[in-house]
Write a protein that binds this DNA or RNA. Structure first.
Ligand code: SF4
Ligand code: SF4
Lengths: 142, 142
DNA sequence: TTTTTATACGACTAAATATGTCTTATTTCA
DNA sequence: TGAAATAAGACATATTTAGTCGTATAAAAA
């Protein structure tokens, strides 16, 4: 299928919350989880992963939490997908991993799909957290 | 993830073969399977599904096989995906099925994602089998 | 009429992925 | 010291995807 993972959705929801509060205070996983009815443990792991990739910064201990670590313009949807779900690509052969597909050499649709893949990834890279804060998506998507 | 299913890829490969031979003769599942090293039984089921949806027409018995049943311009990538994998959509809440997502009401990213979803589906609908026959994709994708 | 070659159909299995939970450790503040 | 938070990773479950198998049916050819 062609679906965004829940992890990605949860990340967007959380990042939006964090972004909107960044100047005021740290946000905890608990707060975000309760705001949006997202499974807490899962959200926590997502936020940890985002921390590893320097999307957000964490503060441990009581009164701890998360805060943005990048300008909202630099947090792209494609970036989040790749951080949380691994390399993105429409076809197996568009991924960096070792490719198992045995049709590679003789595949009759590979270049057409590669072109499509390129366009979709470019679209996803063009969308940033900023577009989720305000309703600026229209401008980007034409 | 954000991946085309193997079923869809196999369908495209098969349809391209069928399209290129349609004026000459019927193509059998075996021929297509051998041409491209695609699992035969799986391919057969895919072709049956496509037959049900009138994308191709089947002829049973010896000397049987498949032939296109629609102009290549009317066979869209989105159509194939939906026939083979079910309704397409980036989010659960963009599907026709009963939606389980409990965040619906308060979801802070739904409209932005809905807009993105719309654009991607439109792109997929704009791509037809014709674009896989010749290399005309560039024109469509800009 | 029998054999061969093909599609039709549905049940079944296996593998991969996605989603969610639990436990324990560590950090920090009050 | 105790409460509240992140850190980390194992574990469990559910869903989806991919592939297989067996049997029935249809049509042409021998
Ligand atoms: S080579 Fe062809 S069949 Fe294999 S993954 Fe790429 S597009 Fe799909
Ligand atoms: S409502 Fe929000 S969280 Fe639920 S499926 Fe739609 S976009 Fe995703």
């Amino acid at each position: 299928m062609l679906r965004l993972s829940k992890k990605t959705e949860y990340a967007l929801i959380a990042l939006k919350d964090i972004a909107l509060n960044s100047r005021i205070q740290l946000m905890t996983a608990r707060e975000i989880s309760e705001n949006h009815q997202v499974p807490r443990d899962l959200l926590a792991k997502i936020l940890q992963t985002l921390t590893h990739h320097s999307i957000i910064r964490s503060v441990q201990g009581a009164k701890g939490g998360y805060i943005l670590n990048k300008p909202v313009e630099e947090i792209t949807l494609l970036g989040l997908i790749e951080i949380l779900d691994g390399p993105a690509g429409l076809m197996e052969c568009s991924l960096p991993e070792p490719v198992n597909c045995t049709y590679l050499d003789t595949c009759s649709i590979r270049c057409q799909l590669a072109l499509l893949n390129q366009k979709i990834l470019a679209m996803l890279q063009g969308i940033t957290l900023r577009h989720f804060l305000r309703n600026e998506l229209k401008a980007v998507l034409g």
